[in-house]
């Protein structure tokens, strides 16, 4: 397993946001975290990245426990994180944003160059010298992913990657994730867009109120009307 999360708890102040969450993702696997608003998807991703402190449980990357490490150390071990709010560096140009993400290649993970990444997101190529604050919402989303890829991660955490993208770009994003998978990257993503998740993910975990309530292959999950109706809000 590339990533193993075992029974972690996470709190914001005194409020519990995760309650014994366990999950795993293998090499080259795309795993989706599903659930309603506030279910704990983002918190799970942040816990893996080390941006939210966990109080119990363990997190291991390629069998090495990383629970005690700071976020920057985890990133250098090969975890890449793309936050929901994108968090582009406003005053830095697109090229400089990419530069911040750059890390030396790591054995066992695909090595990216700026040229290869711009081939993946052609819309960014003409914007190389534009400051991040002057990009549209969707352009920022692409830049956020591109920036993280510059670190050559072996495990990519994507928080709602299809959010705010035009339909054509959602399709492009799905292709991009498929290509990342083909390169041997492990992807853990949170999604509310079931159609997108169904298209890109191999397996999924359904979260509700900070717990994993269901897991299985995407096909199994989609077939389970009950799980979908109750926890995923797909409605009538």
């Amino acid at each position: 397993m590339r990533l193993t999360v075992d029974a972690i708890d996470a709190y914001y102040g005194g409020a519990r946001a995760l309650d014994g969450v366990s999950l795993a993702a293998g090499v080259g696997e795309v795993v989706a975290l599903l659930g309603r608003n506030g279910a704990g998807k983002s918190t799970t991703l942040k816990s893996v990245m080390g941006l939210v402190a966990t109080r119990a449980g363990t997190i291991a990357l390629d069998g090495v426990a990383i629970g005690g490490l700071a976020a920057n150390a985890r990133a250098r071990m090969g975890i890449g994180y793309v936050p929901e709010e994108r968090r582009i560096f406003a005053g830095l140009t697109v090229a400089e944003n990419l530069e911040v993400g750059r890390q030396p290649p790591r054995p066992g993970a695909p090595a990216w160059t700026e040229a290869r990444i711009l081939a993946l997101f052609p819309a960014l190529a003409p914007l190389r010298h534009r400051p991040g604050e002057r990009l549209s919402g969707g352009e920022q989303q692409m830049l956020a992913i591109a920036r993280t890829l510059m670190g050559n991660p072996g495990l990519l955490l994507l928080d709602e990657p299809s959010e705010g993208l035009a339909p054509l770009l959602v399709a492009a994003m799905a292709d991009a994730v498929a290509r990342l998978k083909a390169e041997g990257l492990t992807v853990l993503l949170s999604e509310q867009n079931l159609r997108f998740a169904a298209r890109v993910a191999d397996r999924g975990y359904v979260l509700a109120r900070g717990r994993v309530v269901r897991d299985g292959t995407m096909a199994e999950l989609l077939a389970d009307r009950d799980a979908i109706g109750r926890h995923l809000s797909i409605g009538g």
């Binding site: 919402g137 709602e160 959010e163 409605g235």
Partner: peptide, 14 residues
């Protein structure tokens, strides 16, 4: 501006 971004599908419709 993108009022339902980040919501689940039936919540969007609701």
């Amino acid at each position: 501006d993108e009022p339902t971004a980040g919501m689940g599908i039936d919540e969007r419709h609701a």
